[in-house]
Amino acid sequence: MKKRKKGFPILYIVLCFLFFYVPILVMMVFSFNSSRSLTRFEGFSLHWYEQLLADSEIMGAVSVSVSIAALATIISTVLGTLTAIGLSKTRRVLKEWLLNVNNLPIMNPDIVTAIGLMILFSSMKFDKGYMTMLLSHVLFCTPYVITSVYPKVRQFDDSLANAAMDLGASPFQTLIKVIVPCIKPGIFAGMLLAFTMSFDDFVVSYFVTGNGVQNISIIVYNMTKRTNPTINALSTIVIVVILVALLIGNVVPMLANKKKNGRLKEEER
Protein backbone atom coordinates (compact mmCIF):
# COMPACT_ATOMS: atom_id res chain seq x y z
CA MET A 1 0.00 0.00 0.00
CA LYS A 2 1.21 3.47 -0.78
CA LYS A 3 2.24 5.39 2.30
CA ARG A 4 -0.31 8.00 3.24
CA LYS A 5 0.88 11.34 4.52
CA LYS A 6 0.13 11.73 8.23
CA GLY A 7 -0.27 15.51 8.40
CA PHE A 8 -3.85 15.82 7.26
CA PRO A 9 -5.12 12.74 9.10
CA ILE A 10 -3.82 13.93 12.45
CA LEU A 11 -5.22 17.41 11.96
CA TYR A 12 -8.59 16.02 10.92
CA ILE A 13 -8.79 13.64 13.86
CA VAL A 14 -7.89 16.39 16.28
CA LEU A 15 -10.62 18.63 14.83
CA CYS A 16 -13.23 15.89 15.09
CA PHE A 17 -12.29 15.10 18.67
CA LEU A 18 -12.45 18.79 19.55
CA PHE A 19 -15.94 18.81 18.05
CA PHE A 20 -16.94 15.87 20.27
CA TYR A 21 -15.28 16.93 23.47
CA VAL A 22 -15.04 20.72 23.63
CA PRO A 23 -18.71 21.29 24.58
CA ILE A 24 -18.48 18.72 27.35
CA LEU A 25 -15.18 20.08 28.63
CA VAL A 26 -16.41 23.67 28.57
CA MET A 27 -19.45 22.62 30.54
CA MET A 28 -17.29 20.84 33.11
CA VAL A 29 -14.88 23.76 33.43
CA PHE A 30 -17.67 26.24 34.08
CA SER A 31 -19.08 24.06 36.82
CA PHE A 32 -15.99 25.11 38.78
CA ASN A 33 -16.39 28.79 38.01
CA SER A 34 -16.59 31.07 41.02
CA SER A 35 -19.02 33.45 39.35
CA ARG A 36 -22.37 32.89 37.69
CA SER A 37 -20.96 33.67 34.24
CA LEU A 38 -20.96 30.93 31.63
CA THR A 39 -18.49 32.74 29.40
CA ARG A 40 -15.75 34.15 31.63
CA PHE A 41 -13.86 31.93 34.00
CA GLU A 42 -13.25 33.99 37.10
CA GLY A 43 -11.55 31.56 39.37
CA PHE A 44 -11.86 28.06 40.73
CA SER A 45 -14.48 27.28 43.30
CA LEU A 46 -16.67 24.45 44.48
CA HIS A 47 -19.51 26.87 45.13
CA TRP A 48 -21.92 25.22 42.67
CA TYR A 49 -21.27 21.79 44.07
CA GLU A 50 -22.06 23.08 47.57
CA GLN A 51 -25.21 24.55 46.09
CA LEU A 52 -26.07 21.08 44.76
CA LEU A 53 -25.63 19.45 48.14
CA ALA A 54 -27.84 22.07 49.75
CA ASP A 55 -30.67 21.63 47.25
CA SER A 56 -32.98 18.93 48.58
CA GLU A 57 -34.85 18.62 45.27
CA ILE A 58 -31.63 17.85 43.41
CA MET A 59 -30.35 15.50 46.09
CA GLY A 60 -33.67 13.66 45.87
CA ALA A 61 -33.18 13.26 42.14
CA VAL A 62 -29.63 12.00 42.67
CA SER A 63 -30.83 9.33 45.07
CA VAL A 64 -33.59 8.33 42.64
CA SER A 65 -31.09 8.02 39.77
CA VAL A 66 -28.63 6.01 41.85
CA SER A 67 -31.14 3.66 43.45
CA ILE A 68 -33.04 3.07 40.21
CA ALA A 69 -29.80 2.35 38.35
CA ALA A 70 -28.66 -0.07 41.06
CA LEU A 71 -31.98 -1.91 41.28
CA ALA A 72 -32.54 -1.96 37.52
CA THR A 73 -29.01 -3.30 36.99
CA ILE A 74 -29.46 -6.11 39.52
CA ILE A 75 -32.93 -7.12 38.35
CA SER A 76 -32.20 -6.93 34.63
CA THR A 77 -28.87 -8.77 35.02
CA VAL A 78 -30.54 -11.66 36.85
CA LEU A 79 -33.56 -11.74 34.55
CA GLY A 80 -31.45 -11.36 31.39
CA THR A 81 -28.88 -13.98 32.40
CA LEU A 82 -31.48 -16.59 33.33
CA THR A 83 -33.34 -15.91 30.10
CA ALA A 84 -30.18 -16.19 28.02
CA ILE A 85 -29.35 -19.54 29.64
CA GLY A 86 -32.86 -20.86 29.11
CA LEU A 87 -32.93 -19.53 25.58
CA SER A 88 -30.10 -21.75 24.38
CA LYS A 89 -32.18 -24.81 25.30
CA THR A 90 -35.43 -23.61 23.79
CA ARG A 91 -37.06 -24.82 20.59
CA ARG A 92 -35.94 -22.86 17.57
CA VAL A 93 -39.27 -21.22 16.72
CA LEU A 94 -39.85 -19.93 20.25
CA LYS A 95 -36.22 -18.83 20.51
CA GLU A 96 -36.30 -16.79 17.32
CA TRP A 97 -39.60 -15.27 18.33
CA LEU A 98 -38.33 -14.25 21.75
CA LEU A 99 -35.08 -12.85 20.35
CA ASN A 100 -37.06 -10.77 17.87
CA VAL A 101 -39.39 -9.45 20.55
CA ASN A 102 -36.34 -8.77 22.69
CA ASN A 103 -34.92 -6.65 19.88
CA LEU A 104 -37.96 -4.40 19.70
CA PRO A 105 -37.01 -2.09 22.58
CA ILE A 106 -33.46 -1.86 21.19
CA MET A 107 -34.59 -0.92 17.69
CA ASN A 108 -37.64 1.18 18.46
CA PRO A 109 -36.98 4.87 19.03
CA ASP A 110 -36.89 5.67 22.76
CA ILE A 111 -39.89 7.89 22.44
CA VAL A 112 -42.08 5.08 21.08
CA THR A 113 -41.03 2.72 23.89
CA ALA A 114 -41.68 5.53 26.34
CA ILE A 115 -45.20 6.40 25.23
CA GLY A 116 -46.15 2.71 24.96
CA LEU A 117 -45.25 2.30 28.62
CA MET A 118 -46.95 5.56 29.52
CA ILE A 119 -50.21 4.35 27.96
CA LEU A 120 -49.83 0.94 29.60
CA PHE A 121 -49.36 2.35 33.08
CA SER A 122 -52.19 4.81 32.78
CA SER A 123 -54.63 2.24 31.41
CA MET A 124 -53.72 -0.11 34.27
CA LYS A 125 -54.31 2.81 36.63
CA PHE A 126 -50.76 2.53 37.98
CA ASP A 127 -49.66 5.70 39.75
CA LYS A 128 -46.80 7.18 37.82
CA GLY A 129 -43.75 7.41 40.04
CA TYR A 130 -40.85 5.41 41.36
CA MET A 131 -42.24 1.93 40.59
CA THR A 132 -43.20 2.78 37.02
CA MET A 133 -39.74 4.22 36.44
CA LEU A 134 -38.08 1.10 37.85
CA LEU A 135 -40.22 -1.25 35.75
CA SER A 136 -39.46 0.77 32.62
CA HIS A 137 -35.74 0.79 33.30
CA VAL A 138 -35.71 -2.98 33.82
CA LEU A 139 -37.65 -3.23 30.57
CA PHE A 140 -35.12 -1.37 28.42
CA CYS A 141 -32.01 -2.74 30.20
CA THR A 142 -32.84 -6.44 30.03
CA PRO A 143 -32.65 -6.74 26.22
CA TYR A 144 -29.07 -5.44 26.35
CA VAL A 145 -28.15 -7.96 29.05
CA ILE A 146 -29.64 -10.79 27.00
CA THR A 147 -27.81 -9.75 23.83
CA SER A 148 -24.49 -9.63 25.64
CA VAL A 149 -24.92 -12.85 27.67
CA TYR A 150 -26.52 -15.03 24.99
CA PRO A 151 -23.43 -15.39 22.74
CA LYS A 152 -21.40 -16.55 25.77
CA VAL A 153 -24.06 -19.11 26.66
CA ARG A 154 -23.89 -20.50 23.14
CA GLN A 155 -20.14 -20.94 23.48
CA PHE A 156 -20.64 -22.79 26.76
CA ASP A 157 -19.98 -26.53 26.60
CA ASP A 158 -23.10 -28.38 27.79
CA SER A 159 -21.14 -31.44 28.85
CA LEU A 160 -19.67 -29.44 31.74
CA ALA A 161 -23.13 -28.90 33.17
CA ASN A 162 -24.09 -32.51 32.55
CA ALA A 163 -20.91 -33.67 34.26
CA ALA A 164 -21.69 -31.51 37.29
CA MET A 165 -25.15 -32.96 37.57
CA ASP A 166 -23.92 -36.53 37.06
CA LEU A 167 -21.58 -35.93 39.96
CA GLY A 168 -24.55 -35.04 42.12
CA ALA A 169 -24.88 -31.28 41.86
CA SER A 170 -28.40 -29.94 41.90
CA PRO A 171 -29.50 -27.83 38.91
CA PHE A 172 -29.22 -24.73 41.10
CA GLN A 173 -25.67 -25.62 42.18
CA THR A 174 -24.76 -26.32 38.57
CA LEU A 175 -26.12 -22.97 37.55
CA ILE A 176 -24.23 -21.03 40.22
CA LYS A 177 -20.98 -23.01 40.31
CA VAL A 178 -20.51 -24.07 36.70
CA ILE A 179 -22.54 -22.11 34.19
CA VAL A 180 -22.40 -18.62 35.69
CA PRO A 181 -18.59 -18.60 36.16
CA CYS A 182 -18.16 -19.65 32.53
CA ILE A 183 -20.32 -16.87 31.12
CA LYS A 184 -19.13 -14.22 33.57
CA PRO A 185 -17.56 -11.91 30.96
CA GLY A 186 -20.91 -11.65 29.16
CA ILE A 187 -22.79 -11.02 32.41
CA PHE A 188 -20.31 -8.36 33.38
CA ALA A 189 -20.59 -6.59 30.03
CA GLY A 190 -24.38 -6.74 30.26
CA MET A 191 -24.35 -5.32 33.77
CA LEU A 192 -22.18 -2.42 32.71
CA LEU A 193 -24.47 -1.66 29.78
CA ALA A 194 -27.54 -1.87 31.99
CA PHE A 195 -26.05 0.46 34.59
CA THR A 196 -24.99 3.15 32.15
CA MET A 197 -28.22 2.95 30.16
CA SER A 198 -30.29 3.33 33.29
CA PHE A 199 -28.23 6.01 35.01
CA ASP A 200 -28.09 7.99 31.78
CA ASP A 201 -31.69 7.64 30.69
CA PHE A 202 -33.82 10.65 30.01
CA VAL A 203 -36.49 9.96 27.39
CA VAL A 204 -38.20 6.94 28.96
CA SER A 205 -37.98 8.31 32.51
CA TYR A 206 -39.45 11.62 31.36
CA PHE A 207 -42.64 10.00 30.08
CA VAL A 208 -43.23 7.35 32.74
CA THR A 209 -42.81 9.27 35.98
CA GLY A 210 -44.76 11.92 37.71
CA ASN A 211 -46.02 12.89 41.13
CA GLY A 212 -42.78 14.65 41.94
CA VAL A 213 -40.47 11.71 41.30
CA GLN A 214 -37.55 12.91 39.17
CA ASN A 215 -34.18 11.57 38.18
CA ILE A 216 -31.13 13.70 37.41
CA SER A 217 -31.84 13.96 33.67
CA ILE A 218 -35.38 15.17 34.24
CA ILE A 219 -34.12 17.89 36.60
CA VAL A 220 -31.53 18.97 34.05
CA TYR A 221 -34.19 19.06 31.34
CA ASN A 222 -36.56 21.15 33.44
CA MET A 223 -33.80 23.58 34.39
CA THR A 224 -32.25 24.09 30.95
CA LYS A 225 -34.28 27.23 30.35
CA ARG A 226 -32.38 29.18 32.97
CA THR A 227 -28.83 28.02 32.38
CA ASN A 228 -26.89 28.13 35.59
CA PRO A 229 -23.70 26.49 36.78
CA THR A 230 -25.57 24.19 39.16
CA ILE A 231 -26.81 22.21 36.16
CA ASN A 232 -23.25 22.14 34.85
CA ALA A 233 -22.14 20.69 38.16
CA LEU A 234 -24.91 18.11 38.11
CA SER A 235 -24.16 17.12 34.50
CA THR A 236 -20.47 16.89 35.32
CA ILE A 237 -21.24 14.43 38.09
CA VAL A 238 -23.33 12.25 35.75
CA ILE A 239 -20.61 12.24 33.11
CA VAL A 240 -17.90 11.39 35.64
CA VAL A 241 -19.98 8.51 37.01
CA ILE A 242 -20.51 7.13 33.49
CA LEU A 243 -16.81 7.47 32.66
CA VAL A 244 -15.79 5.73 35.88
CA ALA A 245 -18.23 2.90 35.13
CA LEU A 246 -16.73 2.58 31.64
CA LEU A 247 -13.24 2.60 33.06
CA ILE A 248 -14.07 -0.10 35.57
CA GLY A 249 -15.80 -2.11 32.86
CA ASN A 250 -12.87 -1.91 30.47
CA VAL A 251 -9.85 -1.81 32.73
CA VAL A 252 -10.76 -4.47 35.28
CA PRO A 253 -11.26 -7.26 32.70
CA MET A 254 -8.02 -6.18 31.02
CA LEU A 255 -6.09 -6.38 34.29
CA ALA A 256 -7.69 -9.72 35.09
CA ASN A 257 -6.60 -10.98 31.68
CA LYS A 258 -3.07 -9.77 32.20
CA LYS A 259 -2.94 -11.49 35.55
CA LYS A 260 -4.23 -14.69 34.03
CA ASN A 261 -1.80 -14.50 31.12
CA GLY A 262 1.02 -13.74 33.53
CA ARG A 263 0.10 -16.74 35.62
CA LEU A 264 -0.05 -18.94 32.54
CA LYS A 265 3.40 -17.81 31.53
CA GLU A 266 4.68 -18.55 35.02
CA GLU A 267 3.28 -22.02 34.76
CA GLU A 268 4.87 -22.54 31.37
CA ARG A 269 8.20 -21.84 32.90
Partner: peptide, 18 residues
Protein backbone atom coordinates in the same frame (compact mmCIF):
# COMPACT_ATOMS: atom_id res chain seq x y z
CA UNK B 1 -17.31 5.71 21.26
CA UNK B 2 -17.00 7.44 24.64
CA UNK B 3 -19.43 10.26 23.76
CA UNK B 4 -22.05 7.67 22.77
CA UNK B 5 -22.25 6.62 26.41
CA UNK B 6 -23.18 10.09 27.58
CA UNK B 7 -26.81 10.86 26.91
CA UNK B 8 -28.07 13.25 24.27
CA UNK B 9 -29.62 15.57 26.81
CA UNK B 10 -26.36 16.39 28.58
CA UNK B 11 -24.36 16.70 25.38
CA UNK B 12 -26.95 18.99 23.86
CA UNK B 13 -27.15 21.03 27.02
CA UNK B 14 -23.38 21.45 26.81
CA UNK B 15 -23.78 23.12 23.41
CA UNK B 16 -26.14 25.77 24.79
CA UNK B 17 -23.48 27.58 26.77
CA UNK B 18 -21.27 27.63 23.66
Amino acid sequence: TIPMWINTLLRTYAWISL
